[in-house]
Structure formats: C-alpha cells, structure tokens
Design a protein around this nucleic acid. Structure first.
Lengths: 339, 339
DNA sequence: TTGAAAGCGCTAACAT
DNA sequence: ATGTTAGCGCTTTCAA
C-alpha cells in the first residue's frame, strides 16, 4: 500500500499541513518538528504523489526543454544540454519534458499552445537557435510561462546562461597568431545563428588587434556540418600555395574535422603544414588524429544552470539572472607554429 | 478560467461521467452522444488536466525512456530513438520522461526505484545496451512496470522492436564480395553489445557462404568511436600490401569514418584502393567524402514502434509483440570493385 | 446506455 | 508555529 502524507503526519505526531510545510520547504516550522517529520518520511520511505501535489497546488513540477529539430546543432551538443537540464530538475524534484519544435513551421504557435495546455510546464528552457525566435518568446510571455535561455543572442531582460563566445573565439585566433600564423581562415556556421556571429566577431577582433588585414577569400560559408566543412576546405585549399591559409579556425568541431579531412587529401600534414582548430569540444574533437585544438563549451553545465535559473525563479528565489560560464582553450595537437 | 470536464458536460447536456467515458474511449456510449461530447470539447478547447486524471485514475500517463550514459552509442542514435518514442507518446497523449542510467553503477537499482516511486511511469522503453541488463529487467518485473526494448539480445517473451542486424551485415559483406573483394576486414564494436555480435556473425555468414576463409588478422577490436576506428585501421593497413584488406566493414559509421581517415593517411584513394562501409546510416555517413556505403537502421521508427508496443499493451490492446523492421543497404560512393 | 456520489493525495485559505 | 476545512478535476463504484 502507498504511504501517504497523512500516514507520515500520524507517525510524526503532527498535522498533515505541517508535513506539507516540510515537504515544500516552507517557513514557520520549528526545526525540531521539521526533523521529526523528515525522519518519519525517511523511515516510511515516503514519496509524495506528484499528481496530487500538482492538482492541489496548481503547478506541474515540470520543466520543458525546447529545441529546434529543423536545422539543429550537433546532436551531442543538445544531448549534453539535456543531461544538464535533467540534472537540475532532479535536484529540485521536478521532471523534465523535451519538445522538438520546427522553427518557422506554420503550426509552430499551435504546437507551443498544445504543449502548454497539455502539460502546463512551470518553466521552460530554450536552446539555440530558438532562444531568439520572437513568436515563441511572445507566446510564452502571453501565456505567462517563465523561461531561461542557453546562449541567447539578445540578453537584455533575459535569464539564462551565456558564455563569452566572442572572447573565446578571439582567444583561439590569438593563439594561432601567437604561433606565427598570418593567413588565418574562418569557416562560418549557419548564417543567423548567434554562435556564428560571435565566433566571426571574435575572429575579426583578433585580426584587428594584431593589425592583420582581413582577407575576404579566407572567410567562407559553412553550415555546422562535417560535410559543409569539407566543402569550405576545398574552397580554401584550392586557392593556391601563395593565397592558401596556414591555419583554419572553424566555427565548430564537425566542420574542423571536415577541414582536416580535405587537408589530408591535399597531402597536407597537420599540424606541420596546416593548423586547424574548432569550437565546442565535442567528443569527436579528442578522437580525431591529430587531436583537435578547440574551445571547450561546458554545455552540460550550461543546461544545468539555465534550468536552475527558471527553477530558482519559480521558488521565489529572486527573479533569475543571466549567468556567464567560462570557456577554456583546449590546446591539443592540431595546431602548431606556422610553416 | 480553465475549462473543466464538468463544463463540457453541461455544454453537451450529459453527465460528467459520460464525458469521462468519451475521453477514455470507453464502450457504452451511444455514437450520437459521443459526437455531441467531442464537438463540445472541440468548441470549448477543452484539455483534460493530466494530474487530475492521473490522481483519480491511478496512472501517470508517463512513459520513461531509459538509456545508458556510461558507454553509450552515438548520441545521434539515441536522439533519433528519443524522437520516435516522443512521437508515439504524443499520439497517445502520454508524456515522455528520459532517464540516463549508469549500467553497473552501484546505485543502479536505487536509481530505478527512485524513478518509479517518484514518477510512476506506466511503461518503460529500454534502449541498447541496457536492454538486457538483468538486474534492471528483474527490478522492473518486481515493480510491475511493463517495458518494451529496442534491439534486445534475448528475444524470448520480450516485447519491442528488432532489426535483423545479422542478415543486414551479411548482405553488406555480400555486396563487397560481389564487387570482387576477397580480403575483407571487420572492425568490431564494444565487446558484449548485441550489435557487435550480430554484425560479426553476419560478416562470418557472408564469408562462409562464399567459401572465403576468415583471417583472424582481419578482424580487429573497436569501440564504436571514431578514434577506435582510427586505431583499428592503423592495425589493418600496417599489415603490408599483400596481407592488407581491400575492403573494410566497420560495425558502425563513426568507426568507418575513422578507417577512411587513416586510409587517406596511407595514401589510399577510396573507393579505388580501398572500399569502406559502415552501419547505422547516421548523419555523418552522407556527409563524408566519398559518401559512406552503410546499412540504414530506422532508429526513429524503432523508437516509435517500441513505445507503441508498451502503450498498446497498457491500453489492453493485446500483450504487445516483438516487431521487426526492415533494414536497407545504402550503397553510396565508398565501395567499389576490388583493385 | 447513463448518472450520482465518493474520494484519489495533496495544498490553499483561514483559523488558532 | 501549527491545525482545520474545503476543495483541485478527474475517475471509480455503484446504482438506475
């Protein structure tokens, strides 16, 4: 038979309401009483019934993680964020719900409405690139659902987590410059993703700070996939020995792998003939040979922190903030002194 | 204000219980009445309160998807399965919960118990490689939670989805044999995963059927990662021109990519000098250059079908079955006639 | 085929 | 600091 709150109350010699208070970390419970109740819960292996709590308390104890499955980032990136969100939810005894959304789909708003009507999430976590999709934010606002974003582009009045990607990209490129590289190429990500813009901006910052000119031929379009890295690299390496870059900074690891692939085809040894670096530090980066120099983005932690922001705001622990996590440069074997 | 079942009942001119019957697809409702009720629901944009249903009906409307995050498969594989499970849950108006589990962890059982006590999933979907983890199956049985498996190893009395991986692997290798290859290598996956065993068995079947001897030097250990494919390929290609394979069948796409990588280092052009093929048809396969010949595994559909098996069994639509989905060979550009 | 009453396990509002 | 009462929105049981 199921142990109910009432049973715990009887065991601890208090009223049900007091047990409820303890359960919800409310004030106005003598510490002594609280301990007795907690002990009784423990002893009886009590687990509150989530539906009963939800029904009576008018909240769902659900956090929904929304992501784009149209042109989404690497699945390992989303998987890590998801893990982090889940971890935070577990800490707070919330459950997590995941929802793929097709940005720009005609049924977009309706799908959000269905999600809200059907599951009543207490809060939402938004992941790139839908962190700035206006119709979404608008609808969430209208329906009064608080949300936190992972790496939002517009940061004003926004809660969630960011990393200084621009600064990280700059540091990465400065590393290359420090190794003596002068012709440094950049492979762009998908056009209007925040990540693409920041990484390009950081690339430019570094060049400018070093007084190096930006050569438009060295900045080529990519699309965050391995295949797009391959295409970009062909473009770069076919420039001819003089104009060819000695280093390539790709906007993510998958594209960097594509670049390395093509370098091999051209008979270039890395890092001797060509330095390559990426961004994100996905599992692939450390598997490649030579191991890829990249920027580590703590995706899992970012997911966790974003979720904690909504959860804290739900529990009235302040309005929630926009926290910044540090990047780190993973200097591995794919970058070396310029030839 | 929220529209409740009672409101719908009033609107349709019936009792709440009748609306409840319609909601739950129960018998004993005149078709005419049913239509009236459905119309009222539609008109009022009624959404039943999941917690109220769950509390009163003593079921959670939750399906939990369990996966291993210790030595798990490629994240894109799990992500696809997850999408499929979610799709099935949506169809049945269930919600999906995801739970990473660390196979062999000391707190394994406790984590399952916590999941069950806290969320009361009505059903569970198991993904490789935890589909056959005995302590898990035992505990689920004890707690009376029905489950379905994706690609379980032991199939007796099991419900879920399978694909004939052995036959698929055999067909893949027969394709190579048909191209004139005689020295065909195989890169193994993680030792005791079902996938590794089936794919090896299929490889052997094909060799045996063609009367080709199995050369132990051509079967090398891998671990499903790109990096392990790289290591395996070095071992194979350093065998010397005579003993070296002319084709490599890797147990998954990531390892195949690693093999292709090393082939480039050895100055081998694919598919002219070396044919390479993989298994799974992950996004990477079609991005590689040359595009990878591989076995397509309909992971998303498999997730969906597995979830449907549990869901159907929950709704009393029979006991649930073990369904088999077809594989298909994706013949692309990485395989060609033997040199 | 339909309905009335009771109650699932918890919390809100209001006592004390 | 703690208790009492009345529901939350649905399904169950039983009756009609």
């Amino acid at each position: 038979m199921r142990v109910r709150l009432e049973d715990v109350a009887r065991e601890a010699g208090v009223s049900p309401k007091t047990v409820s208070r303890v359960l919800n970390d409310e004030a106005n419970v003598k510490d002594d009483t609280r301990q007795r109740v907690l002990a009784a819960m423990e002893a009886m292996d009590y687990h509150p019934h989530p539906s009963a709590r939800s029904l009576a308390g008018n909240r769902s104890f659900v956090v929904a993680m929304l992501y784009d499955n149209n042109d989404n980032p690497t699945s390992s990136y989303l998987a890590e964020i998801q893990d982090g969100v889940l971890e935070a939810c577990d800490e707070y005894h919330y459950s997590m719900m995941v929802r793929p959304l097709r940005m720009g789909g005609s049924d977009f708003i309706q799908r959000i409405d269905t999600l809200i009507s059907r599951h009543h999430p207490d809060g939402v976590v938004l992941t790139p690139p839908i962190t700035d999709y206006a119709p979404l934010l608008k609808r969430l606002g209208e329906r009064g659902v608080p949300y936190a974003s992972v790496s939002p582009v517009k940061r004003r009045g926004c809660i969630g987590v960011t990393m200084d990607e621009r600064q990280a990209a700059r540091a990465m490129v400065e590393h290359l410059i420090g190794l003596g590289h002068r012709r440094i190429a950049h492979v762009l990500g998908i056009a209007n993703h925040g990540a693409s813009r920041w990484r390009l901006a950081g690339y430019r910052d570094a060049l400018a700070a070093a007084g190096l000119p930006e050569d438009p031929e060295l900045v080529v379009q990519g699309g965050f996939t391995f295949g797009s890295g391959v295409a970009a690299a062909r473009q770069l390496l076919s420039l001819g020995k003089r104009k060819r870059p000695t280093a390539v900074f790709a906007a993510n690891d998958d594209m960097a792998a594509g670049v390395m692939w093509v370098a091999g085809e051209y008979g270039l040894k890395m890092p001797r003939d060509l330095s390559v670096c990426g961004f994100d530090d996905t599992p692939l980066a450390s598997q490649l040979w030579p191991a890829l120099t990249t920027v580590r983005q703590p995706s899992r932690e970012m997911g966790r922190l974003a979720a904690l922001q909504v959860l804290d705001s739900l529990r009235g622990r302040g309005p929630g903030r926009l926290v910044e996590v540090p990047y780190s440069l993973e200097l591995r074997d794919s970058t070396a002194a310029a030839p």
